Simulated scan of single mutants.
Amino acid sequence: MGNIRPSFIKIRAIRLCEEHGEKFTNDFDHNKVVVSQLTDVESKKLRNWIAGYVTRYRQRRTD
Rank of each mutant, 00 (worst) to 15 (best):
M1Q: 09
M1N: 06
M1L: 07
M1C: 06
M1P: 03
G2W: 15
G2I: 12
N3M: 12
N3V: 11
I4D: 04
I4A: 11
I4S: 10
I4F: 02
P6F: 11
P6G: 10
S7L: 12
S7H: 12
F8P: 00
F8H: 15
F8T: 07
F8D: 08
I9D: 04
I9F: 11
K10W: 00
K10N: 08
I11Q: 10
I11M: 08
A13F: 02
I14S: 12
I14F: 02
I14V: 13
I14D: 05
I14M: 10
I14A: 10
R15F: 02
R15E: 15
L16H: 04
C17Q: 06
C17W: 04
C17N: 01
E18V: 11
E18Y: 03
E18G: 06
E19I: 09
E19T: 12
H20Q: 08
H20L: 02
H20T: 02
H20K: 11
G21V: 04
G21W: 14
G21C: 07
E22L: 06
K23N: 01
K23H: 02
F24Q: 08
F24E: 00
F24C: 05
T25V: 09
T25K: 14
T25L: 11
T25E: 04
N26R: 09
F28P: 00
F28V: 08
F28N: 04
F28W: 14
F28K: 09
D29P: 00
H30I: 08
H30D: 11
H30F: 06
N31D: 08
N31I: 04
N31S: 09
N31F: 04
N31P: 14
N31A: 08
K32G: 00
K32F: 01
K32L: 11
V33T: 15
V34F: 06
V35Q: 04
V35R: 03
V35K: 02
S36F: 04
S36C: 04
Q37K: 14
Q37E: 12
L38F: 07
T39V: 05
V41K: 09
V41G: 02
E42V: 15
E42P: 01
E42C: 03
E42I: 14
E42R: 15
S43Y: 11
S43W: 12
K44R: 15
K45I: 05
K45A: 09
K45M: 10
L46W: 10
L46I: 10
R47Y: 00
N48W: 03
N48Q: 07
W49C: 15
W49E: 12
I50K: 09
I50F: 00
I50D: 02
I50V: 14
A51V: 01
A51T: 00
A51N: 02
A51W: 00
G52F: 01
Y53P: 03
Y53C: 07
V54L: 13
V54F: 02
T55M: 13
R56I: 14
R56Y: 02
Y57F: 06
Y57E: 13
Y57K: 13
R58K: 14
R58C: 11
R58S: 07
Q59C: 02
Q59L: 12
Q59D: 11
R60T: 10
R60N: 13
R60P: 00
R61K: 10
R61N: 08
T62F: 12
T62E: 13
T62A: 08
T62M: 10
T62Y: 15
T62S: 06
